[in-house]
Design a protein around this nucleic acid. Structure first.
Lengths: 127, 127
DNA sequence: CTTGACCTTCCAGTTACTGGAAAGACTAGG
DNA sequence: CCTAGTCTTTCCAGTAACTGGAAGGTCAAG
């Protein structure tokens, strides 16, 4: 499988697949005589795993941890749960921040007439 | 006022204040004989305006827009409202994404025993 | 044999700063 | 006047995670 087939199968851009090999996230695949990267199903599965982990907002370094646990037949689930729980807390923190941001901004937008006059509570508040 | 006094007054790191002048977000301040940047109250007010806008998640380019409206005595509030409303929609979009992410991950964390056994629903789900 | 799609490497750019080095300026104490 | 310490300057590099593009090699079809 050449890189574009693998990237299609994994649901990632070609550039990203190459990038993941460059930074050693997935080990560099073998090469054809012409120097083309050739991927197998196992590599694609790892790429999919990474894509899904990234979609969950795990950083590349967290993906690295998760991936090694994914490949480790003797892993214990405590490790994985720890990483995921930490991520969950980050999400909850972000949600709280976003909520107060939302409420404040929504209030400002609501009280702004939005006409052609120069007085604007949003600007007043920011300044 | 030297840069550190201005940065204190504005609540921004010195580096950031310098950076904002470099990228032309605030016009470059005048210099002392020795080449030190000297800030006045008006500059500090603009820096505060930017800091607060950034805290609201406006990008640097949006801050640029808002700042020019802030300085424009003839601005109409419709423009400002438009920018803020767009930002509000982005926040709401992000909130929805974060919510579904949260629910999915919370479910996984909940169903993971987190013991020393190798089977782990989080890994199963990601892989 | 040529065309076009695909592949390679390498370099630069993105966002919004942040860290650090080297060197000049200013202030207070002795 | 000297020195120590703090402040300031510029410039270069790094962060995270890619993305875009150029220059050039490869492959399959017609």
């Amino acid at each position: 499988m050449n890189i574009s087939a693998a990237s299609q199968a994994a649901g990632l851009p070609v550039k990203t697949v190459r990038y993941y090999a460059d930074i050693g996230l997935v080990q560099a695949p073998s090469r054809s005589d012409a120097g083309y990267r050739t991927y197998d199903d196992a590599s694609v599965r790892k790429l999919v795993f990474i894509r899904r982990s990234r979609e969950f907002g795990f950083s590349i370094d967290e993906c690295r941890e998760l991936l090694s646990l994914y490949q480790d037949q003797d892993r214990n689930s405590a490790e994985v749960k720890r990483i995921a729980s930490r991520r969950l807390e980050e999400i909850e923190q972000k949600q709280r921040e976003l909520q107060s941001l939302h409420d404040e901004l929504a209030h400002l937008v609501k009280t702004c007439r939005g006409d052609d006059r120069p007085d604007c509570p949003i600007i007043d508040y920011l300044g």
